[in-house]
Write a protein that binds this DNA or RNA. Structure first.
Lengths: 354, 354
DNA sequence: CGATCTTTTGACATATGTCAATTATAGTGG
DNA sequence: CCACTATAATTGACATATGTCAAAAGATCG
């Protein structure tokens, strides 16, 4: 494992050199700055994994450093530990309120310092990972945060339930009891327009979570979830979900980002629905299905989906969808066997002109 | 102003009575619990504005209380102050890491206690307010957080710029420099489909912020912002925006909620676009405009909008929109004078059948 | 194997987009 | 302030893409 980069900001030369030595002995890569201004510059440039900073310094004090760094996205979430002789309650409180992650008072021993660093790094490690920027990344993210064991344990617990094909999991208007984890099978979520027609807003695959939007909104479900095939689903209680999402500021941040990306994606979908031809819409629906459900390593993608569902993804009438599928079949873009559709030419389908 | 409710959880009778007395003298409404279990129950039931809690208690200790309360949405954001004789560093750190807001060590004097409470209440007061649940509530929210003075000051600064009608503020693909505040005028944001047709995704009115989605995504703009009429716009630097959004966990939480609601609204829009008739779509577009731009206290709402823009809100061809407007005119639902449209019968327009 | 549900095809109506011509409006400069 | 011009709104004529209804063919399930 690569050694972590730590930035140490401390004006006292002896203190700085001593501390740096300890850190280096512990296997960290250390940069040092002898005053606040220099520290901020180094932080911006080197993007260390953790920052240790004295409070009382000439030029720019520790509070100032923290304030400046917290204004920049790139450095805002870097763990920040104050290191100071100011053991007084007021100072301490000020530091924590400004968003420091820890506050070590001098004198401290090596073990104490290293423990503090270790614990902060461990916490931030999880969040540093690059999750897929899409809302689907949530799945990856949650499972990572919860840890594999917990997850496995979860599905071994009694809340695991089997669903038949086309069975309803929750309905528009219900109150959420938690987040669903799809152990096996596929699920669609859809909303119904006033003319009774349904539109599919979400598709979920094995190993993914769904049904969190209502929890985040703190309201009722505004969609209905139904299985697309036989499935095994378990419920993560909402208390666990909330404590996961809100306990840690960085997790909240990830959620904000994921939701923003999701919002953007829906907007793109809006233009397509508004102005694309049925031909293009159906092609897009097939592409969506492919991207959502493809298994790595298989050449041509086959899916078993009802024409009605496909039409509800595309946002068009079932018969129109079927006719378009026939066209695609004639053009050798897809192959159809009963309700199974196989994509033969992904790229041509994807780049279909309107 | 109504007095705030504080819940005091403390097992030592003398200590509890003394502290409660101080708090009552200071004008707070105090509930007391003599152990952790009782405290949690009371917190759930009474939903106090602030909780003060001892750490060492029989049955359920302070850490346990905090943990339980943080799992419930309703109590998770209630300010929580630990009150304890355990002045040791490790205890203290544990408490803060679990999400306590402050940590007072015994013995403390009255002033110290009251100050701590006052500062926490002040901080949480802002967040307790009920902002409109829509994404538009952001505006209200930011201005409240920033404070009226700052806002006014902002628009008095040099970054204020005047824009002519139909002038571009930013374009798809640009990198955001901050959030825009619309001091005067109206703005639309739109995305362009592959066939070159535009679709309007956002409408903004005086006193509102826009252009924050790209910042939250930490990416480029994926929409283009253009003024609908002459406007005055100023820029809130992104650093300020980020520190606003991420500094405080509760603000982040608000954002998560707002974005979730926004996502849900876009999904509803999707069904409408997919299955509604042009007639219905145009009516919806007019209703949207009304809701977005109506001034309180005026009977019939008039707006000056180009037919093209209206069509791009509805997601239909300009000529179709115009024809539908003519129909509405014949049906006395609206009145048209030049490019000005007046809504005569809001309710009929709103409940139009498909 | 029959009954039920789904898919496919056919025939048809029409809602909506497109292109072009005409009329109205608003912005500009003298 | 008026005339002129560019731009926007409206109307007409038309083609067609797409939805609807109905019936036939096929698949699925107990």
């Amino acid at each position: 494992m690569m050694s972590k980069r730590i930035l140490l900001i401390e004006d006292n030369t002896e203190m700085r050199e001593n501390t740096a030595e300890i850190l280096e002995l512990a296997g960290y890569k250390v940069s040092t700055a002898m005053n606040g201004r220099e520290g901020v510059e180094l932080a911006q440039k080197e993007k260390p994994e953790l920052i240790i900073c004295d409070i009382m310094m000439p030029q720019l004090d520790g509070y100032g450093v923290l304030l400046l760094l917290s204004k920049n996205v790139e450095t805002a979430s870097t763990p920040f530990i104050f290191l100071t002789a100011k053991a007084e309650r007021t100072d301490f409180r000020k530091g924590m309120e400004m968003g420091a992650d820890d506050y070590l008072t001098k004198p401290f021993d090596d073990v104490e310092l290293l423990n503090a660093i270790e614990s902060r790094l461990k916490k931030s490690d999880l969040l540093r990972k690059e999750f897929s920027k899409s809302i689907e990344g949530l799945n990856e993210f949650i499972s990572d945060v919860k840890g594999f064991d917990t997850l496995k344990q979860l599905s071994e617990e009694k809340e695991l339930r089997e669903y038949r094909k086309r069975e309803e999991i929750y309905r528009e208007g219900n109150y959420p009891r938690g987040v669903y984890f799809l152990n096996k099978g596929k699920v669609k979520t859809s909303i119904t327009g006033e003319n009774g027609k349904e539109f599919i807003t979400g598709l979920y695959n094995e190993g993914e979570f769904f049904g969190y939007l209502a929890l985040l909104e703190e309201g009722k479900y505004n969609e209905t979830a139904v299985t697309l095939e036989d499935a095994e689903i378990c419920l993560l209680p909402k208390e666990d979900f909330y404590s996961l999402v809100y306990k840690n500021a960085d997790v909240s941040k990830k959620f904000i980002k994921m939701l923003s990306v999701g919002l953007h994606e829906k907007e793109e979908q809006l233009v397509k629905l508004a102005y694309n031809s049925v031909r293009k819409k159906v092609a897009d629906a097939l592409i969506t299905l492919h991207n959502r459900f493809v298994k790595e390593g298989s050449d041509n993608f086959t899916i078993n989906i009802s024409r009605e569902d496909l039409a509800n993804i595309a946002g068009t009438a079932t018969e129109s969808t079927i006719r378009t599928l026939s066209d695609f079949k004639d053009e050798k873009l897809i192959e159809v066997h009963a309700s199974k559709i196989t994509i033969l030419n992904y790229n041509k389908l994807k780049d279909l002109k309107n």
